[in-house]
Design a protein around this nucleic acid. Structure first.
Lengths: 159, 159
DNA sequence: ATGTATTGCGCAATGA
DNA sequence: CTCATTGCGCAATACA
């Protein structure tokens, strides 16, 4: 359904200073002292006065909640993605197997076909020999309807 | 007014405030100012001696270098991973196609085979009729070898 | 305008 | 020790 859309928003142009509050396994935990990058894109120094907004930004229950939700979503998404990949891989294996089977079958059928054809030819020869040892091409006795398949069979079997 | 520590609901574990400056390709050069945030975070003062280690930890050219290397490696790895997944997907498609082809071939061969068989039977019948008008059922001259295919072909041709 | 889903990216732990 | 892989969180988008 969703094909990766290639909208490549280059996050390059804007030298946005992102402050990441991350306290991993390290017991470190610090409040992000926010770096006020003006949103408008204008590189202006930030006034140290209204930091409240900023601080509220991260502290806000709202924010925290949203983050958590997103983290959850991310986790889910990734799980699915991984699963999908796995499934795909498995599909490859199945298809491979199937392919082998089909090829084997083809081989078998081909063999059968060739045998039958040979038999057929042999018969024809026998008949010709019996009826007209010297005839080059004799019509078979009775109504010999000619089933003409355009089969170019070059099977030479010499028993 | 100050919000020193943040509460972490449950799945929380971070706290490192890292200021990230995306001043790579961009001509922007914002020195990645580490935000060491007041160490006092929760009142756990760390020995100044150890802190040095910490601060050096991040500041160290060594660290930064390692990080960058790792980031590169990560990027590479992910790229490869993605590529692999893509390849796998493509393989699925190819295999699918091949499968179809094989199946078509099988169908064709089967058909041919059935035609030949019919021809054979017909011949046998004709022979029987000519040679033994009263014969009930004569065994076919050919050796019907193993045919483990359950081909149910009921072709009745009556000209 | 709001909520989830994807995606790129960095960090850290771990594997080889 | 260096590089590769993996889980995780953040933020920007893409979708609905």
């Amino acid at each position: 359904m969703s094909k990766p859309s290639q909208q490549r928003p280059n996050t390059d142009q804007n030298g946005v200073s992102v402050i990441q509050t991350q306290a991993h396994s390290s017991g470190l935990q610090q409040v992000p002292q926010l770096v006020p990058v003006s949103p408008g894109g204008g590189g202006k120094a930030i006034s140290p006065s209204k930091m409240k907004k900023t601080s509220q930004d991260k502290d806000s229950e709202e924010y925290r909640q949203r983050r958590e939700r997103n983290n959850l979503a991310v986790k889910k998404s990734r799980m699915r993605s991984k699963q999908k990949a796995q499934d795909t891989q498995q599909r490859v294996n199945e298809l491979k197997e199937e392919n082998e089977r089909l090829e084997a079958k083809i081989k078998l059928l081909s063999k059968e076909l060739s045998v039958l054809k040979d038999l057929f030819l042999e018969h024809a020869h026998n008949l010709a020999d019996n009826v007209q040892p010297q005839g080059t091409e004799a019509s078979a006795p009775g109504q010999n309807n000619n089933n003409s398949n355009n089969n170019n069979n070059n099977n030479h079997k010499h028993p």
